[in-house]
Design a protein around this nucleic acid. Sequence first.
DNA 1: CCAACTTTGTGAATTCTTGCACGAGGGCGG
DNA 2: CCGCCCTCGTGCAAGAATTCACAAAGTTGG
Lengths: 225, 225
Amino acid sequence: MPGRTPEPGEDPREIPDATIVRLPLYHRALMALDRAGESTVSSEQLASIAGVNAAKVRKDLSYFGSFGTRGVGYDVPQLLSEVRAHLGIQRSRNCIVVGAGHLGTALLTFAGFADRGFSVVAAVDVDPDRVGSRIGGIEVGHQDDLDRLVRENDVVIALLSTPPEAAQQVADDLVAAGVRSILNFAPTLIEAPEEVVVRNVDLASELEILAFHEGRRDNEVAPAS
Amino acid sequence: MPGRTPEPGEDPREIPDATIVRLPLYHRALMALDRAGESTVSSEQLASIAGVNAAKVRKDLSYFGSFGTRGVGYDVPQLLSEVRAHLGIQRSRNCIVVGAGHLGTALLTFAGFADRGFSVVAAVDVDPDRVGSRIGGIEVGHQDDLDRLVRENDVVIALLSTPPEAAQQVADDLVAAGVRSILNFAPTLIEAPEEVVVRNVDLASELEILAFHEGRRDNEVAPAS
DNA sequence: CCAACTTTGTGAATTCTTGCACGAGGGCGG
DNA sequence: CCGCCCTCGTGCAAGAATTCACAAAGTTGG
């Protein structure tokens, strides 16, 4: 979906999109194993922790070389570091939260980002009641300071949690400020230049997908008259 | 991923997974068109609003029959109703929020669910400070009342926003109470019987996927020593 | 040092998804 | 009423992703 440029000789080993979305699962699983003091893990174990199957794990990991030892499995710290390297999170990446409503607040106070290689360093909003307040240790700036905050803090990723009406304008501002990746929580399509990667998280859409499966169980789908 | 039972003659028209995840996009787009008073829409227009291509739109919609008129396009209200029917949200579905932290609060106050066919009717937490408070018009109950709240309110979908350590236990309780779909925000795998559909939204994972693409631009990936 | 055992890495087969390209059908202007 | 034009619906081919299944490679116990 994020139109990869299909350069002919781009990289020795081209990692498929489907694999990329699974890397975070492996990352999570490996962190848990490492914390538990496990020094090696087999593809079978890793698969069961990540919730996928073993063949897929091996194929996925094979895209960045051979790191397993046959008969034993993978070295946990080494594989962890390898996965981190490929995810580009060896050093932490700075993020900004745009829109400090309830969702923005949740994002600002979410404890789980630091471990995973992200650091929320700034936030902005337009509401005067929110601007100036501190949420999760971050002072909420005004929307107008977005450009400055992005540049001063070396922000590369934005978490966009504004109402949908404001999303496109905010996205444009973010791109102009130099942000290169946007995680969009607003339930609307946002346009951005090709080199900016946008991912969408639409909570209502997720629920609808669940509802689809519910519907399948309830009954035969009753088509609209 | 939610292992569809591959029954031989299960249903007249089997809708592919890839299509299912796009239905919510069409739903969103059609609601916008309907609100704007558009009475018809072509696959081309719909595609551009939803952010996909026209051929895909036509193929996707064709899975539930022929509703377009050649030369004109699709009738917006009719198609909207058709999409709703297939998504199983003709009548609203009741949801419970489990874990009323910042994220749970965001979910409880999120305005966008009602339109899309969902109604959050209950919430629970374990923290005595939160139990009894009202958030977004819902009174937060105690975790121990989960079973009762689910049954009394005819809840079929749960939004799981507890810390990861508690997630599996909560999921078990939800399943025991009769919940059939879980949207899991906790960054951990949760196990559930096959007939219960679980979808995962891991915010850190989403960021990691963005970081992957960042990394690709920064430089050549530097493999771990 | 050898044999038995374990687990990786990967070709090949299969299944799923996408996208093209075009025929079929329906509206609309003349 | 006829012919042109537009857009759907879909067969087919190309491309991805998944899964299988097995040889290769390393470990461990005797």
